[in-house]
Amino acid sequence: MRILVCVKRVPAPGAKINITADGRAVDTAHLGFTTSPHEECAVEEAVQIAEAHGGEVTVLTLGPAEAEEQLRYAASVGAHSLVLVPIEEVDWDPQRTAAALTATISGIEAAEGAFDLLLFGNESADAGGFQVGVRVAHALGRPIVNGIKGIDVGDGSVTARREIDGGFEVYEVPTPAVLGVKEGINLPRYPTMKGRLASKKAALVTIEQSTEAGGQLRERLHRPVEQVSETVILGEGPEAAAAVVDVLEELGVLA
């Protein structure tokens, strides 16, 4: 199988996210970067499918030059080819991103043959537009289902499971297919030392795209006003249990 995974480089925040003085972006001065969590699982899933059924995994990202770090990480856990679509801006809007990814994928397929499966993260951890994979799939005329937490590869189709409240929906999607994957589909492996060394030598192709901005324009970022709650300390040991149960009684959850 030929599988392509689209990933995004995002900051790795802890307890709080700071914003730059001009309000245009997340202040990353004291933050590391990571692959958006759903997409890290998409890479793992692709590598597992390739290991089980044979095949090649290509990982594609649209981002700053530094996103090479996330591509190398993907190679260190088993991806074979890496493609970077470099951008100068902090982020592109969803329509523009999708158009650039579609052009890039079409270009790779024209030269090297079609992919059987394209994997996206369900949504990016930062901007969370919930649409890039759908737009790319539609532009390529391929089926897509989002929210996928289980994939079984069949002959000419994939069985995909989507988590819903209290269970799963099952989809039988003919290949070539596109799936939006969610964290929880697997537990991503950590890179081995051998993987890390090999990732430094993995071939990385840079493909420039110039697509037009879409109709959604970011003005500024800000933090929501937090309701400052005065935390009532009920106690400092197991003897606080009575006070806790008083609270639960008051809330009516003991009935």
């Binding site: 925040p13 996210i17 914003i19 997340v26 951890a125 930062d126 901007a127 969370g128 109709g215 959604q216 324009l217 970011r218 003005e219 500024r220 970022l221 800000h222 933090r223 929501p224």
Partner: peptide
Amino acid sequence: SLTRVQWGGSLLEDATLTA
């Protein structure tokens, strides 16, 4: 003019929509 959620709700984005 809209205010939308980023980072699952820990940041807000002011944006404009032309369509």
